[in-house]
Simulated scan of single mutants.
Amino acid sequence: MNQQSYTSTEAALQHYKEGLGAFTQKLPEIARSFNAFTEACFEEGALSKKEKQLIALGISLATQDEYCTIYHTKGCLDQGASEQEILETCGVAAAFAGGAAMSQAVTLVQECIAELATKH
């Protein structure tokens, strides 16, 4: 990972949560507003929560955001996405963003599935 090397995707998620907590203490109104906005974006609507998580995963891969890739792979699993659905999403992201997205799909996403799917 870019910022720090982790032994697991769960450690990266914990690192993110700790950073978010510190940020929230320093800028509570911004954090509250951002969290409210993102929660609203991921509510069930014309698109299901699962579909929205799959879209977010594809965007995360295309933008090379490793924390979001982990977070949204977990979100996909939490919303009941199958490994096949997740990997097809990775394929679409790779078709759009090329080799950079594919490199994350064949490493980080598969590591997330292996580590986090056992929790479901």
Rank of each mutant, 00 (worst) to 15 (best):
G45W: 08
I70A: 00
G58F: 00
T7P: 13
T7G: 15
A101Y: 00
T69C: 12
E111F: 03
A31H: 12
Y67L: 12
E115P: 01
L61N: 01
K74P: 04
T118F: 09
E29L: 09
E43H: 08
I30D: 09
V92K: 06
K74A: 03
P28I: 04
G45Q: 12
S8K: 07
K52E: 06
T107R: 15
V109L: 07
I55A: 07
N35W: 09
T7N: 15
E39H: 09
A36Y: 11
C90L: 04
A105T: 07
P28D: 07
D78T: 02
Q25Y: 05
E83V: 04
K52F: 06
T89L: 05
Y71F: 14
G58H: 01
G58T: 01
Q3N: 15
S8L: 04
T89F: 02
Q53Y: 06
A81W: 00
A56C: 02
A95Q: 13
A114K: 13
T38W: 13
G99P: 13
Q104I: 10
S8Q: 05
G19C: 10
Q14M: 08
Q64F: 09
L77A: 02
I70N: 00
V106N: 15
Y71N: 11
K49I: 07
Q104T: 08
I59T: 05
Q79Y: 05
A40Y: 06
Q14V: 08
E83Y: 05
G19N: 10
F37M: 13
E43K: 12
R32F: 12
D78Q: 03
I55V: 14
A97Q: 07
Q53W: 05
L116P: 03
A36Q: 14
E111V: 07
H72Q: 04
E85Q: 14
L108F: 06
T38V: 11
L54I: 03
E85S: 08
A36K: 12
E43D: 11
L116F: 02
Y16H: 11
L77W: 00
S5D: 14
G19K: 09
F42R: 05
N2S: 13
G98T: 06
I55W: 06
K26L: 14
L20P: 11
Q53M: 14
G99W: 10
S82R: 03
